[in-house]
Nucleic acid binder design. Structure first.
Lengths: 249, 249
DNA sequence: TCAGTTATCGACGACCAGTCGATAACCAGA
DNA sequence: TCTGGTTATCGACTGGTCGTCGATAACTGA
């Protein structure tokens, strides 16, 4: 317990220069925008044109405007890469402020997770591209770590919320849904189990329609939709475990 | 998708003045420090001396130093209120940057949850005090909301992690432990159930000791400790439900 | 009509938590 | 030392939920 001055006001006043040289600190927002494309989870990356790390892929984002809220700012920045209306979900991940996380002046970053539903195919500018999350190029700064945080958040929330609604088209079959879950979770998802879990939690309901069979035949699939298009947390937890390894003997 | 410039570099350069008047933005850290004292959850508050909101209770914290990491900063700021060594756990909650969240210039705040184990009784300065979380005075700025976020985080993490270790003394009886959980969760906690859940998750182990009975008699209680003094996430979830209301009929 | 394919359903079993009654181990006072 | 009161611990029952799998349904194309 250090006996220092006890009244450091957190309101306007001279900047605290006790713990480093006084210099302007910038605040930026970064977005991990994920979408399942062709059964593979992708992240939207942007190719840096300027130094430092020119040519490297990085997360979309930019400096917080002086009169902007954080969420407002990331929406604006993402609007340059993806149509905002395509974003089915957006939530804050965390903030990072290590003094040397970017070269030059210190930049505090607040990161967001954004989701784009699978049926959307937003036009992205030329310097921007979807990358499979399991085969990322070398990313700028600490952005690889941020992508990891986004994937991890998505994975856990798929288990105990209805976040699936943000991944899929408005209507879908159970097989399709399972493929979306597989892409995000990284392991097999049993269709029977998924159907029962989501139904028991009242997250999905049948539309009444059935799909025509494909050319390879098979029973036509019933069409479902999510009941609520916004995030809800489940009371009864369950982790959507990966399939158990059969215990030999 | 707005056809704007696509290369807004998130690195050094002139500040973005497109979305508000250019003015320096400050970054602060705030801590929700919780402790169970006499079976009641308390939060550490600090009485503001200066305007705005002079006289109101507020969360400890302050301006981020130019060369400080966020976590480093909140530890430093809390050292003025509570001995850092008493903090058994510290994790980031979220960041808030609404332009008018504090009067005057815009301040982005990154908030942290801190826990102090129940046996500690750190010396706190005169303008600082423990307040029962269920009977808080009017707080400054958005600090009441931040306290809510901290309580909520603690509640959910008690269910699916071993965070209990950060609440209790190094050793404890099951009855004591249940009282700590009760204080944080806000509902009854069955001792038998708690014991079985934590044991099956390998979070606790008996020390072998037993406590002498009090003057009112009773069987001596076995003494336990947490196995691991750092945060671990449980695989098998379970929410430590409040007791079910007996369904009449 | 039949084989192949895909979807759906029902049932079984394991696991785990919520509950409760039985038992253990102590105290104090008669 | 007996007895009732008190607290802690344990075992057992139960219900719910999931992981699994085999049976059945509903289609296709040959």
């Amino acid at each position: 317990m250090s006996p220092v001055s006890l009244s450091r006001p957190p309101e306007p006043g001279p900047p605290d220069v006790t713990h480093g040289t006084a210099q302007p600190s910038r605040h930026e927002v970064l977005g991990v925008v994920l979408q399942v494309r062709d059964d593979v989870l992708h992240v939207l990356l942007w190719r840096r044109a300027l130094a430092p790390h020119a040519g490297r892929w990085s997360l979309p984002g930019g400096t917080l405007g002086p009169a902007e809220d954080l969420r407002e700012s990331i929406r604006r920045q993402l609007a340059e890469k993806v149509d905002v209306r395509e974003l089915s979900h957006l939530e804050q991940l965390d903030s990072r402020g290590a003094p040397r996380r970017v070269p030059g002046e210190r930049v505090v970053a607040t990161t967001y997770l954004g989701l784009v539903p699978g049926h959307a195919d937003p036009h992205v500018p030329a310097d921007t591209r979807w990358h499979p999350v399991d085969a990322l190029p070398r990313l700028a700064f600490d952005h690889a770590d941020v992508v990891g945080a986004g994937r991890s958040r998505l994975r856990s929330k798929l288990s105990y919320t209805n976040l699936g609604f943000a991944l899929v088209p408005p209507t879908f079959t159970m097989s399709e849904l399972a493929r979306y879950y597989r892409a995000c979770l990284g392991h097999e998802v049993d269709v029977t189990n998924l159907q029962r879990i989501l139904a028991r939690r009242d997250q999905i309901e049948p539309t009444g329609d059935v799909l025509r069979s494909g050319r390879s035949g098979g029973r036509p699939a019933a069409v479902y939709r999510f009941r609520h298009p916004s995030l809800e947390v489940t009371d009864a937890f369950a982790v959507l475990h990966p399939p158990r390894i059969a215990t030999p003997g």
